[in-house]
């Protein structure tokens, strides 16, 4: 890894872009119409849910197919707790903790499972949660649905409040996930992914690391669900079904499942596809299926890997034409 000097044009440019992007995002309600703002809210929400998948699928390498269910727990939990009189932030936190507990409950047997066994168990669990959303009519309203009380921040209007809520949640989650990635837990998770059996000899408890990943990603899923409820304003059980699952998989994998920025890119594409193929659910689902197949088949490490791939190809070309063996060693060192 190379260290840039504290002042350089590259750093300055990067900082400038970040500041402009932040200002744009903060001022978005004044720049776009209410429908576009609604779409931007959806992007942030999907990205938040995808960040949970980065943790569990990207870093700890477990196939967990229950994130749509956790979003449902967050959405229904928060909405019904608010209806009971709790303030929204507290309701979100409680719903998140419930989801985390459920996550650990799935995780307990699941930490013994590997590969596709885990996929089956979590998919079966997601089905069960969907059934519960349908059956638990007193809480969820069943098939008939549930109206969500909008949260209003200060003297903002509903649309604006919703945007800052979604943006804030996405930003905080992205920051937290990024921090976790650089912490000891992040390193342990990746170690567990790469050598499940071997880490035992390094006094790393694979089970504990996996359970933490389950709890955290479920918690994040519930946060995203709470925001999703605010955006949709009306909940029915089938919102949290298979289509949401496949959308979340694209969100997580399109950009590259181990990058914190990946889900934001994926969410833009998913919401864009939803918009393009608005009225026809089947075309949407066909597009989602094909996009996921293409990503898995040709870009298993996502669009983010394109850059390093192109870079590698360029370096290889430079190597063969001009570089001396010594220079090649230097570039190889930089690349790693």
């Amino acid at each position: 890894m190379t260290h840039l000097p504290w002042f350089s044009t590259r750093r300055l440019l990067g900082g400038l872009i970040a500041v402009v992007a932040a200002l744009l995002l903060l001022g978005l309600p004044g720049l776009v119409n209410s429908y576009q703002l609604f779409l931007a809210c959806l992007v942030m929400t999907m990205a938040t849910a995808g960040l949970g998948l980065v943790l569990i699928m990207g870093w700890s390498g477990q196939i967990v197919l229950a994130q749509a269910g956790f979003m449902g727990v967050g959405a229904y939990g928060t909405t019904s707790l608010v209806a009971l009189g709790l303030p929204w932030p507290l309701a979100v936190l409680l719903a998140g903790l419930v989801a985390a507990l459920i996550g650990v409950a799935i995780g307990l047997p699941a930490t013994r499972l590997r590969g596709f066994y885990l996929a089956i168990a979590t998919l079966a669990f997601a089905e069960l949660m969907l059934r519960i959303f349908i059956e638990a009519e007193p809480i969820t309203g069943g098939i008939a649905g549930l109206v969500v009380t909008p949260v209003v921040l200060g003297n903002l209007d509903v649309g604006g409040s919703r945007w800052y809520l979604c943006l804030g949640l996405a930003a905080v989650t992205a920051l937290a996930v990024w921090r976790i990635g650089r912490s000891g837990l992040g390193r342990r998770l990746r170690a567990v992914r790469d050598a499940d059996v071997a880490v035992g000899s390094l006094a790393i408890s694979a089970t504990r690391a996996k359970l933490l990943a389950f709890a955290l990603s479920a918690f994040i899923g519930a946060l995203a669900g709470a925001a999703y409820a605010q955006v949709l304003t009306y909940l029915t059980p089938h919102i949290f079904g298979l289509t949401l699952l496949i959308e979340l998989l694209i969100v997580a994998f399109l950009g590259g499942v181990s990058y914190v920025g990946g889900p934001f890119l994926g969410a833009v594409v998913v919401i864009g596809l939803r918009e393009l193929l608005q009225d026809i659910g089947s075309w949407q689902r066909l597009a989602f299926g094909l996009v996921l197949a293409l990503v898995v088949g040709f870009l298993p490490r996502g669009l983010a890997s394109l850059r390093s791939r192109i870079g590698a190809a360029r370096r290889r070309r430079a190597d063969t034409s001009t570089a001396t063996p010594q220079a090649r060693d230097v570039t190889a060192g930089v690349a790693s």
Binding site: G115, I246, S282, L292
Partner: peptide
């Protein structure tokens, strides 16, 4: 790995169902 093949068959699941 199974990770990839599971995702690929889920993609096929959704695509064929849509058709």
């Amino acid at each position: 790995s199974h990770f990839t093949t599971v995702l690929m068959t889920i993609a096929m699941f959704v695509a064929i169902n849509a058709v």
